[in-house]
């Protein structure tokens, strides 16, 4: 293991998706799929040693961030975090996702790393995982039998484990189209400003005046996978959002999370701040229904 010398592997460079799927059918069990490589190559410097790397770099047309009002947002497998941060439409309509990409990693890793890669890595602390789960959506997979969509709610199976089969390529992430009264927010607590999250949270609300018609609340680094906090969502759904209600929701959040101790934080702390963070992202989401993105300070500066 060395942070300077990578283990030896065979590089597969398909030029289209069909070829990629074919190669994965052949080598899938021993292959790692690489988009930006920012996670994979670090993993390989600390112990991972796949026999093959299948790089998506030569497949044209996967680096899109596209939106239409009916189908929502589509992010291609090679679209970088920087592209998402630079996207006016994401900043405008998907505040939680925008902010999760904005605070994710560093400019260099955002220039190489992809949103879909973040989803596929299935880290419970993944910022984009958390935001995407709150927005709600699906991952489009392409395999030997064709394409299939897996709802994000079913995509992460366990720690670092996803519904993607070894012979499938994740082609795109789809997020649902905003409805009237749509707002979202994201927050993470970190040791230093730029850091992996100790805990992160995201909310998407659909408001009808002061009443929360629908809500999706997601939280990361409090369980082996990014969690939907469904009990907490129930507290808010259909109710007028008051400080008291938010406290009730926070209490529900603390019951729902199952955090652990690790090098970044403690289970006790995570449980304690889980409620606080949930309140804050719900408040941010509600604020963003009416106003511009609360995090737009760097856009078009």
């Amino acid at each position: 293991m060395s942070s300077r010398v990578l283990p030896v592997f065979d590089l597969l460079l398909p030029s289209n998706l069909e070829e990629a799927v074919g190669l994965l059918s052949q080598h899938g069990d021993q292959a790692a799929v690489m988009a930006g490589g920012t996670d994979l190559l670090v993993g390989m410097k600390v112990g991972m040693s796949p026999a093959f790397i299948l790089s998506l770099a030569d497949i044209q047309g996967l680096d899109y961030v596209a939106f239409d009002a009916k189908h929502g947002l589509r992010i291609g497998a090679m679209a970088t975090l920087s592209q998402v941060v630079d996207s006016k439409v994401v900043n405008d309509k998907y505040h939680a996702l925008w902010y999760s990409a904005f605070t994710n990693g560093t400019p260099q890793t955002r220039n190489a790393g992809t949103v879909v890669g973040n989803i596929l890595r299935a880290s419970p602390a993944g910022d984009c995982c958390c935001a995407a789960l709150a927005h709600g959506g699906s991952v489009l997979l392409q395999g030997p039998a064709g394409k299939r969509e897996v709802d994000l709610d079913e995509f992460w199976l366990d720690y670092r484990k996803t519904a993607r089969k070894p012979d499938e390529v994740a082609v795109e992430l789809k997020l649902k189209a905003p409805e009237h009264g749509y707002g979202s927010g994201f927050a993470a607590l970190t040791r230093s400003y730029q850091d992996l999250a100790k805990i992160n949270a995201a909310a998407r609300v659909i408001m009808d005046g002061k009443v929360c018609r629908k809500v999706r609340l997601a939280m990361g680094a409090v369980a082996p996978i990014t969690l939907r906090l469904k009990e907490a969502e129930k507290v808010l759904t259909g109710q007028e959002v008051t400080d008291q209600l938010l406290e009730q929701m926070a209490a529900a959040v603390r019951k729902e999370v199952k955090p652990i101790d690790d090098v970044r934080s403690t289970a006790e702390y995570r449980r304690e701040v889980a409620g606080v963070l949930a309140k804050r992202v719900v408040q941010d989401a509600i604020k963003s229904v009416a106003g511009p993105c609360p995090y737009s300070c760097f856009m078009g500066a």
Binding site: T38, T109, N111
Partner: peptide
């Protein structure tokens, strides 16, 4: 070597910063 320190930062096309160690 793991993309945290940025000492290996170079520019692509004269303006985009990437990490030599993770490329």
């Amino acid at each position: 070597g793991t993309g945290e320190c940025g000492a290996c930062t170079v520019l692509v096309d004269g303006e985009k910063a990437i990490l030599g160690c993770l490329t």
